[in-house]
Design a binder for these strands. Structure first.
Lengths: 227, 227
DNA sequence: GAGTCTAATCGTCATCTTGACGAGAAGTCA
DNA sequence: TGACTTCTCGTCAAGATGACGATTAGACTC
């Protein structure tokens, strides 16, 4: 087979919830093209590497999170002929949901990396290099949709969390306030969404809250109602 | 940039509902590898072609459906290093939903093409070439999910259809019988799901049924309940 | 150590949606 | 005319939702 010259890359939309807001990990590009501009982390797929392996490798390089317990899913593939000025590069975008990292972003090969509020980036279509604004937009929309019908919000939480911490995730991702009482009822009455740990915490202030961990459910039916 | 040798292809999961069953368009491969085996239609992306354009071109070649009103959406990308024995080929899979075609499959460059019941193919993981069983499986699952929360079932219908024809689509795709009365209530009470044409037909037998056409809704909330 | 503050948790209630199913309506066919 | 088929409208109980009142259990202040 003779193949056209073509590059294959993976780009990552790494999301977390910090300080009550949905944030995305961006890097500042150290080399041309778009040198000095913000972009999603990513890189070329190695010759004998599967797509998800490539995404997981990039994730580890940027965040130090090498665990296979991190939720990572393919979002879409972008292959417009001139999306990259270096030549034809097709990029497979992955979405990663990570808990609020205690440590800052680990040593990476990017010039610099930092968490930025997703809303802020989405509001400014010219902020990111390449077609990364579009990729981010699709990734965030995927995350929003996933919270509706899957118990994935807990991917943003530490292993043990309270109901209101979980609610904070929903509010940050959806950008909508939710009624604490109805949310509590919904979460605790949906079978296997969360399971009680048996301990309480006062880290959120106020009356001590029960701690829960992720349950075994994989889909939520009926789904959570987006505000 | 120096790029590794790499092929970029699009593969199509083209679904329709015929004779009360969900069917998929398959071709019999005329050349190696997997010569003589069934496979999803697809082909290499041209040097200056966007991914969706490539998928639409393949769709037109296989079905004669060149309209941009045909629903086509990207499902996922498959890039395991050795999924194609010819070398590294990354394939972007698209899902197309088409109405029951009055004409048989138009002249195509495939050795032969035909509609096959999706359930039958899904039951036999060795039937298809490459990793196409997996791609088909993902495509069908996407279609099933889409019917729940989008009004896309009408993409399988002619421009004007009856409620029970629409119900037939749901039953075929989900493989579940639905209560005609509750289905009728749900569809007609969901705003902008369908709009009445003002005429009736007796083509389904029994009492004449009102004809409807697709409404302007893009999402269904609450979603349709899968049996 | 009593009052204040905060957030968690439990309850109530009207409204909406669902699933199950009865029953009549409006055509075709013999 | 009667049998048959399918469409369409209704009813009813059960469950889910949204709005919101009330109580509880800690921490914090004075």
């Amino acid at each position: 087979m003779d193949f056209e010259p073509l590059g294959l890359a993976t780009d990552l939309v790494i999301l977390t919830v910090r300080e009550g807001a949905l944030q995305v990990l961006l890097i500042r590009r150290g080399i041309a093209p778009y040198k000095g501009r913000w972009a999603l982390p990513g890189g070329f797929v190695r010759p004998d590497e599967d797509l998800e392996d490539s995404a997981r490798r990039e994730l580890a390089e940027e965040t130090g999170l090498s665990s296979d317990r991190i939720h990572l899913e393919q979002v879409a593939t972008y292959g417009a002929p001139h999306r990259d000025p270096r030549g034809r590069v097709v990029s497979v975008a992955y979405l990663a949901l990570v808990p609020d990292l205690p440590a800052p972003v680990a040593g990476s090969d990017a010039a610099s990396a930092s968490w930025v509020a997703a809303a802020e980036v989405l509001d400014d279509p010219g902020r990111l290099a390449f077609d990364h604004h579009r990729i981010l937009s699709d990734g965030v929309e995927r995350a929003r949709a996933k919270l509706e019908y899957s118990p994935l919000a807990s991917a943003f939480c530490p292993p043990e969390f309270t109901i209101s911490e979980l609610r904070g995730v929903y509010e940050a991702v959806w950008g909508t306030p939710l009624d604490p009482r109805n949310f509590h009822r919904k979460v605790t009455k949906t079978p296997d969404f969360v399971e009680p740990v048996g301990a309480t915490t006062t880290r959120d202030g106020g009356r001590p809250a029960q701690l829960f961990r992720r349950g075994s459910a994989t889909i939520l039916y009926p789904p959570m109602a987006r505000g």
